[in-house]
Structure formats: structure tokens, C-alpha cells
Design a protein around this nucleic acid. Structure first.
Length: 818
RNA sequence: GCGGCGGUGGCGGAAUUGGUCUACGCGAUGCCCUCAAAAGGCAUUGUCCGUUCAGGACUUGUGGGUUCGAGUCCCACCCGCCGCACCA
């Protein structure tokens, strides 16, 4: 017998060549081709350097799903692209002087090459990169659609500014007061910027979460981020200045307990209220101090409450009481109206402030708790005869009705979500297609003039304004509307804009006439299975949902949600820590592929544990998976020497003994792997099942007939294909002469899944005492008799009275005795 | 503080509906093959008691509960991770 050695270096390039030459994974958009469609999408990579182990994992997961969908009869769209604009490439350019396009393109080449070497089944005909004019032309087109619809607008606002990256940031990109990218503490600046009106979609973004199959934690994060609060807006009047101040409250039922009023330091009226009074200096000092404090210091929840009395009063609309006005930094300008009614009896923050400044604390909601503040529910007390005694939740509705009738307030909803700030004062991004004309204002670049190309410049360094401003030839244009001298917008778009619609472009990636043909989009959208990291739970996933809803309202597509199902995979760590160059604990996928082959690398990252969990890398574990692939391949190669398996992959008939045992194991494995891949992502147990089948085939190497062994091994190869495509294709071809990816997913023969003899567990008082063999269809009485006769059961029943007997057919018998 | 997830051998993990806890893999030990090694193969492997042979006791973070039966359900607590957090 010839010696067979598993050599991935020979096997893998061979099959990659076949798939590339035959364009095996390309799908057409022809609507007349029958069959169910499936859009399997993995989040596109940000091309920086080389792929890391996380990429290997996420694309291995996506590929397993794509292959399983194909083999079970679906036409699968599995595209690839690159999120190519962004700060790292630009910062690299600042350091080296090399154009960001060069470093980006060389990184893309690396990613592309490695994806091919990993054997990922990508439809390369749809490849895209967001920095290509062919792509960002349509990013600009979408921007203009939004601009025309009023969904993109420019306004001056207090914004978050990163002093290191020298650009503004979206709220979502500020984490604990620090820039998400570089970690610098952000500053507040008053600037005119471009925004997308995502807040118009707050309710739909919230409600439609119920229509999609996403992990609960991601939905929760989005709900929290949108932060919908129901309550009322109530007007407090300042007689001294003749001004009305509305406040937002979720607890209008506690209005009678409001004993003071607080404004945020940023509130534009604060200085006006004290102008010319003896409190002016003290208030100015306080505000200056509050504004210079970092958002982190100011945001600390346990920080002692501070504030200053303004010397003015407002009238509580429900009881006419004049209550003192304060400025305090625990009130935030960006939420609600920037002013609050303070109810120290029923709010912890107000209570802390009232205690510090000796302000009255009044109980207006009764309860079992004696101590104030009490934030729970209970009957209304000390308020008004009309409401006293009512449960506070009922009183809340009546009080809002009363306010509405009196014109002093109304029911209201507030959101934590802010509009999405999309302009960036940086170079390496999509230009905003707007011309600023002194006479016409903001003028959109006509559609036929798109794309507005990003000009080449020599100095990328940020200087507080976009580096594009220095490209004077580019900036100075004539106004598309009046023809007069005008200037281009020099800010570029947030890179999250680029990635908010790439999944739409994949559907119709080579369309030169439009961003997409809506009919083609209807073929594929929504994405059936989206796969990516949980770090995008808020930013990307919220923005993409907003884009799809906005584009739907404008008539460009027909779905409400982009991603019907979402799967978030866990991180691979090394020695319990996140891999990073600075820690020197990086495992390079390329090294692993080089040493063991892509199939070993892919199988290992799927076998290591449940894919949604974090998992720790183990070099020994990789060896184990490699041994398994090696053994399966070798067994197949040996079995193929003595003959070939023709026709359908079905078990031979009338088997017995070792043959039957092996055929049964194959049927069991088919059943197990199919279940593990149907609606679940249990790749680890699916691979374990193929290992068991392989072990059985190896064990019965000499006892089972050659064609039964070939059947079992071909089944193992077929089931392994979604995880180790090269090895599986090679082994399958040797055994059958056919291509495994062109074969239907195997069906388990029901006759082989059924057992004629089953093992019955015999328990006495719930403890396992023996096991007996019984016919599968045995009656309860027969099972009972068998178990009572079992020697070790007898020993434990000796001298005892049987109280009760429980029979679970096919499984166990429990005899209760005392 | 609030919300979510988790805690099973020496390690990663399995147990799909309350029904044989520890599948599969790693590691470890012994053996076979070999002049030797590599590769490969075979066997054993939760802890403790039992010299053998049976067999027994204990064991899924801790303590209770429900049940014939609990890793799984309920209550309380401990620990770990993630998200949010002065949002009125």
C-alpha cells in the first residue's frame, strides 16, 4: 500500500485554483434563476496592515454558514470589500509622507491574498473598497438625497473635539469623555458642522428591534443608546424676567414636591438672570469652573453636588409656589431643556443637592419606606385634594391632563440619542459634495458632476481645519447655481457613513448608472445572516439601520431593516489577554496557515469553543485539530485505493455487525452536524461529531467492508466541507470522483437513526444502579421487569418496599423504595 | 448603582425539552511499531474509599427549596466578564 501523507501545501493551492478559475462562488442577479436566495455577510474589514486572528475567525464562521446554505439548496451571496477611508491610514501618512492610498492599497492586497489562501468562498466579482471613486461617488449621492430631504443639515452646536486627532467626533465615538480612537480627552467646542437627522428615526429604530433576530445584549445596548423616556414638559414661569422655562420630567406625579429649580451651566439664560445683580461674579466663576472641568470629572456620579443660587424664582404651575433658581453642574444642557424641576423627596440627585444647600425636602409619594429620597411608587400625599390618595402612576396621567388643559404643559417624550455629527476636519475620507456660495448658500454639487474627487495634497497634518482647505485649486469653484465664485466644503465624512450602505452596493456592485437597481436589491435584501464583532453594537449597526430607513422613505429600496439576523462572535485571546503588538502576544494567522494549512487554522478557531464566546488560543489545540484532519484525509486516501464510491451517497443495504455500526455512526453524524448548523452556530460540536465518525471508521478499519468504510469516510468529508473545504474536497474527490460542493447536503437514513435495541438506565431512588438492554419498542411493563431483574438493582432493593416506579420509555426506569 | 451574560475534570469545552454529568479535543501515564527518533497506533485518565474482584461515597461557585429525579427550574448569597451610568 502506498504511503499517504497529508500535505496542505499541495492540496490547498490546487483547490483554490479550481475555485478561482471556475469562479465557483460567483452568483448572478438574474431573477429568473429559481431557488431560495441567501445573503450571508461578514462585516467588511478595515484594511490596516495584515489580517489578524479575529479576521480568520469571523470569516471562517461566515464561510461555514455560506457553505451550509449552498449545500442545502440556497443561492448564496457572500461578497467582500474594504472599509478603506479612515484615520489610521492618514496618521500613517503624516508620519511617513506616503499617500494614504498607497498604504491602504497595499494592505488591501494583503487581505485579498490571505482570504484566497484561506479558501473563503467569496464572490470576487462584487469586490469593493470605500475609498474608490466608483464607490464614494454613490456615498456622495446618498448624502445629497439626504440633504434634499432635510435629513442632512448644517448647524452650529456644542460638539466634541478631539485635540489629538484635530477633528470633531460623533457622540457615539466618545467613550467616557475620551476619543474612542486615540484615547485623548475630548473638549467641547462651539462649531458649525454637518449632521444626519437620525433622531427623526428614534422611535422606528426602537420599535423595529422587535422585528429582527439579534442577540439580546445588542438590542439592549441599542435601546439604552436611544434612551427613550416618556414624561411631560412642564412650564415654570420666572415673573421677575417674564420668561417661561419648560422642563422635561419623567415624574410629573411629583410636581407638588418640587422645591427648587436648577439650570445647566451652559444654559444661555443663566448669565442674563444674574446680570447686574450682586450674584453676577459668583455665578460667572461657577460657570467658568464647570465649563473647564473635563466631562469625566463632571460626570462622576459620586461627585458632591455643587451650585449657586441665582437670586431669582420660578413659579411651580401646579401650586403657584415660588421656588428658588440655581445653577448646578449636575444638570446637563444636552438632555431635555437644560433645566430641571428638583424634587428632593423623590430623586437621589436632587436630594443630595437639597441636603448640601439646606433646601426643603417634601414627601409627595407615600410608601413603605420611611426614608427619603423614595424613588418607588405609592399613593400621592401632600399634593392637592384632587390627587391625594391616588396611586402615583394614575395621578401622573391626571396631572398631565390638567397641565395640558391649563396650557402649562403636555405629555412629552425625550431621547438620549443625538443627531449624528458626520463632518470631520480630516483628509482621508469621502468629500462632502457641497459648494458654499456667498449668494446662494449651501449648494449641492449636481449629480452628473459626482464624484467630487478627493484631491492629492502634500501636507496631511491636521491644523484644526480640514487639510483639504489648503488645496486651493480644488476648493475654489464656481457656484453650480449662480456661476459666481464659490468654495467647496472642505470637511470629509465620518467613515461610518461609508460603511452604512456597503451591503446595498454589493447587490449591484458594478452598476455605473446608479448606486443600485432597486429590483436587484429586492433579490437579496435584507441580509439573511450578518456576522461581526459586538464592538459595532451601537455605532455601525445603528447607523446602517438609520440609512436603510431613510433610503426606504425616499423610495430607493423596500426594506425596513438591513440585517434580519445578527451573530456576534467572541474574541480570541492569548493567555487570557487581548492580542496586541505592544504585549507581544500576537498569533499571526499567516504563520499558522504556513505551518499547518488553512483548513487546520479554520477548523481550530471553530473548534476552540462556542463562536460567540471569547476563547483563548492554544498551540497544542491546533496540533490536535491538525492530527484529526491528517487522519481523516489519510483514511480517505487509503480507502480510495481499493475502489471508488459511485452514485448517490447512501448507505449500502442489509448491513450487520461492524458494517451496520459504522453506517449508523455516519447517519448519527449527519443528523448531529445538520442540527448543529441549522439555526445554530454550534461549529465546535459539529466538528466533534465528524471526529467521532472518523474515529469509528478508524477503529473499524479491519472489520467493516470497504464500501461501507468509503461511505462513512465520504460522509465525514462531506460534513467537514463547510469548515475545512480543501481537505474535504480532496478527500471526497478521491473517494467518489466528484466535487463535494456540487453535492447536496447528505440526508441521514431514518432507518439507520433508529435503534432496535436501546440501553435503559436503571435507577433506585434516583441513583443509577445498573443498565440493561431492551428492545426499542418494549412496553413499560417489560422495561420495569427487566430493570427489577438487574443484579445491582436487586441488591439495592433488598429488604425494601417499592413505593413508586417511573418509566421513561427508551431512556430509564426509576424505582422508588424505602 | 442599573441592565445583560457566565461559574462543569489538570486545561478548552459537551450535556438541544428536568432523565446515564464530563461527548470531542488538549495535557498526562503506560505500551506497540523502530537500531533509534519523528510520525503513527493501542490502552488508561473526575476525586476519594475498597490490596484484587465486584462495588460504594462524593462531585457542575456557596447555602436552601421544588421533584421519583436538578448542571438545567425557584429563593438567597459569593465571584468573574461586558454594557450603561448625575439622562431629570
Amino acid at each position: 500500500m502506498a504511503e499517504h501523507r497529508y500535505d496542505p501545501k499541495l492540496i490547498e493551492p490546487r483547490w483554490q485554483q479550481v475555485w478561482a478559475d471556475e469562479r465557483t462562488w460567483e452568483v448572478s442577479n438574474d431573477p429568473d434563476i429559481p431557488g431560495e436566495r441567501s445573503y450571508v455577510l461578514v462585516m467588511l474589514p478595515y484594511p490596516s496592515g495584515e489580517p489578524h486572528i479575529g479576521h480568520l475567525k469571523v470569516y471562517s464562521v461566515g464561510d461555514a454558514v455560506a457553505h451550509f446554505h449552498r449545500r442545502t439548496g440556497r443561492r448564496v451571496l457572500n461578497p467582500m470589500g474594504y472599509d478603506a477611508f479612515g484615520l489610521p491610514a492618514e496618521n500613517h501618512a503624516i508620519q511617513t509622507g506616503r499617500h494614504p492610498r498607497e498604504s491602504t492599497d497595499s494592505s488591501i492586497a494583503q487581505f485579498r491574498r490571505q482570504f484566497r489562501e484561506w479558501g473563503i468562498s467569496i464572490d470576487w466579482s462584487r469586490e469593493l473598497a470605500t475609498h474608490e471613486p466608483d464607490y464614494y461617488r454613490w456615498t456622495q449621492w446618498i448624502f445629497l438625497q439626504f440633504f434634499d430631504a432635510g435629513l442632512a443639515y448644517r448647524k452650529e452646536a456644542a460638539v466634541k473635539w478631539c485635540p489629538v486627532d484635530q477633528t470633531v467626533l460623533a457622540n457615539e465615538q466618545v467613550v467616557d469623555g475620551h476619543c474612542e480612537r486615540c484615547g485623548a480627552e475630548v473638549e467641547a467646542r462651539q462649531l458649525e458642522q454637518w449632521f444626519f437627522r437620525i433622531t427623526d428615526y428614534a422611535d422606528r429604530l426602537l420599535d423595529d428591534l422587535d422585528t429582527i433576530e439579534w442577540p439580546a445584549n445588542v438590542k439592549t445596548m441599542q435601546r439604552n443608546w436611544i434612551g427613550r423616556s416618556e414624561g411631560a414638559e412642564v412650564v415654570f414661569r420666572c415673573e421677575e424676567l417674564d420668561v417661561d422655562y419648560p422642563v422635561f420630567t419623567t415624574r410629573p406625579d411629583t410636581l407638588f414636591g418640587a422645591t427648587f429649580f436648577v439650570m445647566a451651566p451652559e444654559h444661555p439664560d443663566v448669565m442674563r438672570l444674574v446680570a447686574g445683580t450682586d450674584r453676577e461674579a459668583e455665578v460667572r466663576d461657577y460657570i467658568n469652573h464647570a465649563l473647564t472641568e473635563s466631562s469625566e470629572e463632571r460626570g462622576a456620579a459620586d461627585k458632591p453636588k455643587t451650585g449657586v443660587f441665582l437670586g431669582r424664582h420660578v413659579v411651580n404651575p401646579v401650586n403657584g409656589e415660588a421656588i428658588p433658581m440655581y445653577v448646578a453642574d449636575y444638570v446637563l444642557m444636552e438632555y431635555g431643556t437644560g433645566a430641571i424641576m428638583a424634587v428632593p423627596g423623590h430623586d437621589e440627585r436632587d436630594h443630595a443637592f437639597a441636603t448640601a444647600y439646606n433646601l426643603p425636602i417634601r414627601r409627595v409619594v407615600g410608601g413603605h419606606h420611611d426614608e427619603l429620597p423614595y424613588t418607588g411608587d405609592g399613593p400621592i400625599v401632600n399634593s392637592h385634594s384632587e390627587f391625594d390618595g391616588l396611586h402615583n402612576r394614575d395621578a401622573l396621567i391626571k396631572i398631565v391632563d390638567w397641565l395640558d388643559r391649563e396650557g402649562k404643559g403636555h405629555a412629552s417624550v425625550n431621547y438620549r440619542l443625538r443627531d449624528w455629527l458626520i463632518s470631520r476636519q480630516r483628509y482621508w475620507g469621502c468629500p462632502i459634495p457641497i459648494v458654499k456660495c456667498p449668494s446662494c448658500g449651501l449648494v449641492p454639487v449636481p449629480e452628473e458632476d459626482l464624484p467630487v474627487r478627493l484631491p492629492d495634497i502634500t501636507d496631511y497634518a491636521p491644523k484644526g481645519r480640514s487639510p483639504l482647505a489648503a488645496a486651493e485649486d480644488w476648493v475654489n469653484v464656481s457656484c453650480p447655481s449662480c456661476g459666481g465664485a464659490a468654495q467647496r466644503e472642505t470637511d470629509t465624512m465620518d467613515t461610518f457613513v461609508d460603511s452604512s450602505w456597503y451591503f446595498l452596493r454589493y447587490c449591484d456592485a458594478r452598476n455605473d448608472e446608479a448606486a443600485w437597481d432597486p429590483a436587484v436589491l429586492a433579490e437579496w435584501m435584507p441580509v439573511d445572516q450578518y456576522i461581526g464583532g459586538v464592538e459595532h453594537a451601537i455605532l455601525h449597526l445603528l447607523y446602517a439601520r438609520f440609512f436603510v430607513k431613510g433610503l426606504k422613505d425616499l423610495g430607493h429600496l423596500g426594506v425596513d431593516e438591513p440585517f434580519a439576523r445578527l451573530f456576534t462572535q467572541g474574541m480570541i485571546t492569548k493567555d487570557g489577554a487581548k492580542m496586541s503588538k505592544s504585549k507581544g502576544n500576537v498569533v499571526s494567522p499567516q504563520d499558522i496557515v504556513e505551518r499547518y494549512g488553512a483548513d487546520t487554522a479554520r477548523c481550530y478557531v471553530l473548534f476552540i469553543g462556542p463562536p460567540e464566546h471569547d476563547a483563548d488560543w492554544s498551540d497544542e489545540g491546533v496540533e490536535g485539530v491538525h492530527r484529526f484532519l491528517s487522519r481523516l484525509w489519510r483514511l480517505c486516501a487509503e480507502a480510495a485505493e481499493t475502489g471508488r464510491l459511485d452514485g448517490e451517497l447512501v448507505a449500502p443495504l442489509d448491513l450487520e455487525g461492524a458494517d451496520l455500526q459504522l453506517a449508523r455512526k455516519a447517519a448519527w453524524a449527519i443528523d448531529k452536524v445538520t442540527a448543529d448548523l441549522s439555526g445554530r452556530f454550534a461549529f465546535n460540536t459539529a466538528i466533534a461529531a465528524v471526529m467521532e465518525l472518523t474515529n469509528e471508521a478508524s477503529r473499524l478499519r479491519d472489520e467493516a467492508a470497504p464500501d461501507v468504510r468509503r461511505f462513512a469516510l465520504a460522509t465525514a468529508a462531506s460534513l467537514l466541507f463547510p469548515f475545512a473545504p480543501h481537505t474535504a474536497a480532496d478527500a471526497y474527490e478521491r473517494l467518489t470522483g466528484r466535487r463535494v460542493w456540487e453535492e447536496r447536503w447528505p440526508d441521514a437514513d431514518p432507518a439507520l437513526l433508529e435503534r432496535d435495541v436501546v440501553q435503559i438506565v436503571c435507577q433506585v431512588n434516583g441513583k443509577v444502579r445498573d443498565r440493561v438492554q431492551a428492545a426499542a419498542g418494549a412496553s413499560q411493563d417489560e422495561l420495569l421487569a427487566l430493570c427489577r431483574a438487574a443484579p445491582n438493582v436487586q441488591a439495592h432493593l433488598d429488604g425494601k418496599q417499592i413505593v413508586k416506579e417511573i418509566v421513561v420509555p427508551g431512556k430509564l426506569v426509576n424505582v422508588v423504595a424505602k
